[in-house]
């Protein structure tokens, strides 16, 4: 095919697609003018029905909580997949991080960077816990807070303390957190069944609106998801750091 024919083969469908795209855009509701009924219904019902001020959290973990279980297990499967892919292969060996540190003595972390990173670890962890536990009150929740929590160990690494990070080696705890977090969500679903209601139905006491201990199952599920996400992302970070820093090709 000549170059000219290829250009035409691209141009004609591209123009057609652009025309259809513009036509579709003209049919959209005006910017900022919401038409569907569901958002309004949820906004009106969420506080009387669930005592939760974050409508997004109520939709995600309650009204359509079953979907979110699926999403959580996508992440769970991804973490398991990464861990399996990044295992130590037959033609690789582990190199002591100390040796490596000596060879790369020139790449020293500046004191200011190390200090800033170490100083940020505690605030980042507190922020993560806050975002997880207030998911039913303000924007945020288990998924976002979990990733923020996983930022803590990464800051320790950025401060040049990889050896410290490796010595901590809380891999057993991380595996446990990953599994318990994912399983916890399903268990909370079964509490609904045991109480004689539907799977994942919000059967816990709803408490008073605006309190951390309110909205029934929502904060419990958020903590469970936060545990799973924090442990999962930290596991991935650990595996990647190990691969990048101490696993070497050859025996």
């Amino acid at each position: 095919m000549t170059a000219r024919a290829r250009v035409w083969l691209f141009l004609v469908p591209a123009l057609g697609a652009a025309a259809l795209f513009v036509w579709a855009l003209t049919g959209l509701p005006d910017f900022g003018h919401y038409r569907g009924p569901y958002g309004d219904v949820v906004n009106a019902r969420v506080i009387p029905e669930r005592h939760a001020t974050s409508a997004v959290a109520a939709v995600n973990f309650d009204y359509r909580g079953f979907d979110t279980i699926g999403e959580e297990f996508i992440l769970f499967a991804a973490v398991v997949g990464v861990t399996v892919l990044l295992r130590l292969e037959r033609d690789e060996h582990e190199e002591s991080p100390r040796d490596r540190a000596e060879r790369h003595a020139s790449i020293e972390v500046a004191d200011a960077v190390a200090l800033a990173c170490i100083g940020l670890v505690a605030p980042v962890l507190v922020l993560g816990v806050y975002v997880v536990t207030h998911g039913h009150l303000t924007p945020g929740g288990g998924f976002q807070g979990g990733v923020i929590l996983a930022g803590g160990p990464l800051l320790v690494y950025l401060a040049g303390r990889y050896i410290t990070l490796r010595q901590l080696r809380p891999k057993g705890v991380l595996d446990l957190g990953e599994g318990a977090g994912a399983g916890g969500f399903v268990l909370i679903g079964f509490v609904g069944l045991v109480a004689g209601a539907a799977f994942l139905e919000n059967v816990f006491p709803l408490g008073s609106t605006g309190s951390v201990f309110s909205a029934g199952t929502l904060p419990v599920i958020n903590v469970s998801v936060g545990l799973e996400v924090a442990a999962g992302i930290t596991l991935i970070v650990y595996e990647f750091l190990e691969q990048a820093l101490i696993v070497r090709a050859g025996r």
């Binding site: 303000t138 976002q144 820093l245």
Partner: peptide, 26 residues
């Protein structure tokens, strides 16, 4: 859309670039 904003920040500005960088290092 603060909920989506938080997700976009932790995934787009933190998790994804970090994994890309570590993969490149490897």
């Amino acid at each position: 859309a603060p909920d989506v904003a938080l997700s976009a920040m932790v995934v787009g500005a933190f998790a994804y670039p970090m994994m890309t960088l570590l993969t490149l290092a490897k």
